Simulated assay, not measured.
Amino acid sequence: MKKINALLGAAAAVALTVGAASAADVTLRIQTHYAPETVSGKLAQQFVDDVETMSGGEIDIEMFFSSSVVKSVETFDAAATGILDCDMTGGAYQTGKNPAFQFVGDIMGGYDTPYQQLSWLYQGGGFEAADQLYRKYDMKLVGWWIYGQESLASTKPIRGPEDLKDWKFRSPPGLETEIFANLGAKPIVMDFTEIFTALETGIIDGADASGIANNVGLGLYDIAKHANYPGFHSMPSDHLACNANVWDGLSDKHKRIIDTSMQKLALQTALTFEVKNAEAVAGLPEKGVTVHNWSPEDKAMFRAAAQKAWDGWATKTPEAGALVASHRAYLKQLGLIAE
């Protein structure tokens, strides 16, 4: 009996050891620029819950919201160097490394809907081309989550292109600054987390921050009483990108769980914002916010200016040229451009 009890005790100890090891298999430190109270922040938290639940607790995610570890533009490098494990911001922040990141981060003047843009990634040959770019910088692209066209926030009317003259606004780095500057605006590159204070103090007249529901969540329209909807200028692909060594060290099971959770996040983000953006717009007039809807002609003017700017960026690096060519071919296939 003593021998049996000893064997049972040993077996229990082994089981506890295995269970403890399993529970601590993987901890991923991920940073996003979104605040937890925004729609995107809540969706990111659901992604965390999906991964942890499907892995049975084998994967633990520490999510750092509101760029609380490093600045938004520094998240990619922090993951590549091991300060973090993964980056949940967007590729457009990395255009200083290679202009090609513009065309996996914010294509500008390209696709009309998140579904079209996602289809380039998964059906149009985009994923392989994009991942090759990320691998050059010791990172692995896992997936995108796209909330749709962005809307602007402004303390001044933004009725059409004529109102962009001398309009000072927060812009992310990259192609956008060039396009808006050519249209007469004065883009100022600043971190996502600095927008509210800059608007409040009058450093800027407006901001390109996010989709209109996220802008409401950030409180931008408490200060800025002008918006535009539907958007037309920008539809960023927020990404999940992980340190390549960290990703390669995951089991196939864990990779599949994260990939599946990411694709769910992509779908739920697009679907959720269809509703949330409409709800946000409906509630803005009672807050004293004027919503401007640019005419088709004005939107076409912007899109033409954006796609003309692509050509200059396509000459900057071979990777940028390849991605621009890929997007043009796929946009033509979808019937969104004629050439």
Rank of each mutant, 00 (worst) to 15 (best):
S210D: 14
K255S: 06
L199H: 08
D259K: 04
I188Y: 02
A209V: 11
D222H: 01
M190P: 02
S261A: 15
A320N: 02
T317E: 06
L240E: 14
Y229I: 07
T193P: 00
E274W: 00
P318S: 07
T201Y: 06
A241D: 08
G206M: 04
S210L: 05
K308G: 12
A300Y: 04
P236K: 00
V216G: 01
I203C: 00
H226G: 06
A305S: 12
S237R: 11
A207W: 00
M235C: 05
M190E: 10
A209S: 15
K287V: 04
G312D: 13
A227P: 03
T317W: 03
T201N: 14
V291A: 12
K264P: 10
S237E: 13
K299L: 12
P230N: 07
F302D: 13
T197P: 01
V291T: 14
A207V: 03
S326H: 06
A329H: 01
A280Q: 02
W313L: 12
G288M: 09
Q307Y: 03
P318W: 04
A241L: 00
R303V: 14
K287Q: 15
G231W: 05
C242A: 14
Q307V: 03
A213L: 09
P318C: 05
L284P: 04
V291E: 14
Q307E: 11
G288V: 09
C242H: 12
D311H: 09
D252T: 10
A300I: 03
E194G: 01
S251A: 06
A227N: 08
W294Q: 11
L220P: 07
K225D: 15
L250G: 03
G231K: 02
R328H: 07
D208E: 13
S326V: 00
K225Q: 14
L250K: 07
L271A: 08
F196E: 12
T260P: 00
G202M: 08
K287S: 14
A304Y: 00
V324R: 03
D298H: 05
I188K: 04
N245F: 02
S261T: 11
R256V: 08
I258C: 05
A306E: 09
K316S: 04
H327Q: 09
N243H: 09
N243G: 03
H226C: 05
G202Q: 10
K308W: 03
E279I: 10
L220C: 10
W313I: 05
I223E: 06
K316P: 01
F273D: 05
N214T: 15
Q263D: 13
A300K: 08
M301T: 14
V281A: 05
N214Q: 12
V275G: 02
D311T: 10
H254M: 10
H254V: 05
F192V: 04
A322C: 00
L199W: 11
T317G: 06
A209N: 14
G312S: 12
A304S: 10
F273Q: 11
A198I: 08
E319S: 06
T272N: 07
I257R: 04
N293W: 02
K299I: 15
F232S: 02
D205P: 01
H292N: 09
K316E: 05
L220V: 09
D311R: 11
F196G: 02
S295E: 13
F302G: 04
K316D: 00
K287F: 04
G219P: 02
